[in-house]
Amino acid sequence: MTATLPNVITALRLVMVPVAVILLIMDGGQDGAERWWALILVLLASLTDWLDGYLARRWNVVSSFGKLADPIADKALVLGILAALVWVDGIPWWPLAILIVREVGVTVGRLAVAKGVVIPASRGGKIKTVLQMTAICMYLVPGMPGWFDAIAWWVLVAAVVVAVITGVDYARMISRAARDHREGKNATDHDASRSATGGSEN
């Protein structure tokens, strides 16, 4: 139970994503009960993001699944809610477009090298997530004045800037991991070839 609970919490966060998106779309920008429930779910999802990592470290049960699934759950939550906000509230679409390109690129790259090495979330990536969640939660609060939404907008822009910077850093790490994996594989193949020929070279 101890070994699987953090992963169960991560999976639960993934389930919260479509529910929160559906509630936000159902509200349709009317600032009704559905929007409040969407906000509550997003806040709970943020709490589970902290909780699963805390439990995994406390119980020393950090897993490859958790290292990969946890950031994927974060990305699904952020991109899903942002897409709903673009649709319902009409916030500018370009931050969402940049974040989609960045998150898809990083996720695909991490999965591509997952056999050789698991690349965990960086500190910059965590800062980006905090900024994103702050902006989203501010946007979700019903009935706020225009200046409040303006602050949310600039927090979102800051999140996009951090996302681009950390995306470049992740690309470097993924490229290095892929190169090291290829070099290690080539060295192994070379050793195996030498063993097969008696270890002699002519």
Score class of each variant (00 low, 15 high):
Thr10Glu: 03
Thr10Phe: 07
Thr10His: 06
Ala11Asn: 06
Leu12Cys: 14
Leu14Glu: 00
Val15Ser: 05
Met16Glu: 11
Val17Gln: 02
Val19Cys: 10
Val21Ala: 07
Ile22Trp: 01
Ile22His: 00
Ile22Gln: 07
Leu23Trp: 02
Leu23Asn: 10
Leu24Val: 11
Ile25Met: 12
Ile25Tyr: 03
Met26Glu: 15
Asp27Cys: 01
Gly28Pro: 00
Gly28Met: 15
Gly29Ala: 02
Gln30Ala: 15
Asp31Leu: 11
Ala33Ser: 13
Ala33Val: 15
Glu34Val: 00
Glu34Gln: 08
Trp36Pro: 12
Trp37Thr: 13
Trp37Asp: 11
Trp37Pro: 03
Ala38Asp: 10
Leu39Ile: 08
Leu39Arg: 03
Ile40His: 01
Leu41Met: 06
Leu44Cys: 06
Ala45Val: 04
Ala45Phe: 08
Ser46His: 05
Leu47Asn: 08
Leu47Ile: 10
Asp49Cys: 06
Asp49His: 09
Asp49Pro: 01
Trp50Phe: 15
Trp50Ser: 09
Trp50Asp: 00
Asp52His: 02
Asp52Val: 13
Gly53Pro: 11
Ala56Trp: 06
Arg58Asn: 14
Arg58Leu: 07
Trp59Met: 13
Trp59Lys: 10
Asn60Pro: 00
Ser63Trp: 14
Ser64Pro: 02
Ser64Ala: 04
Phe65Tyr: 10
Phe65Ala: 12
Gly66Asp: 09
Leu68Asn: 04
Asp70Ala: 05
Pro71Thr: 15
Pro71Val: 15
Asp74Tyr: 01
Asp74Ile: 14
Lys75Val: 15
Leu77Thr: 09
Leu77Gly: 05
Leu77Trp: 03
Leu79Gln: 12
Leu79Ala: 12
Leu79Glu: 12
Gly80Phe: 10
Ala83Cys: 10
Ala84Tyr: 01
Val86Met: 11
Trp87Gly: 03
Trp87Lys: 01
Val88Asn: 13
Val88Met: 13
Val88Glu: 10
Gly90Cys: 03
Gly90Asn: 03
Gly90His: 03
Trp93Val: 15
Trp93Ser: 06
Trp94Met: 15
Leu96Ser: 06
Leu96Phe: 12
Ala97Thr: 15
Ile98Ala: 14
Ile98Gln: 07
Leu99Tyr: 00
Leu99Glu: 12
Leu99Asn: 01
Leu99Thr: 05
Val101His: 04
Val101Tyr: 02
Glu103Arg: 13
Glu103Tyr: 07
Val104Ile: 15
Val104Phe: 09
Val104Gly: 02
Gly105Ser: 07
Val106Cys: 04
Val106Trp: 10
Thr107Phe: 01
Thr107Arg: 04
Val108Thr: 08
Leu111His: 05
Val113Leu: 02
Lys115Gln: 09
Gly116Glu: 05
Val117Pro: 04
Val117Gln: 12
Val117Trp: 09
Val118Leu: 05
Val118Asp: 00
Val118Pro: 06
Val118Thr: 14
Pro120Asn: 07
Pro120Gly: 06
Ala121His: 11
Ser122Trp: 04
Arg123Tyr: 09
Gly124Asp: 00
Gly124Arg: 07
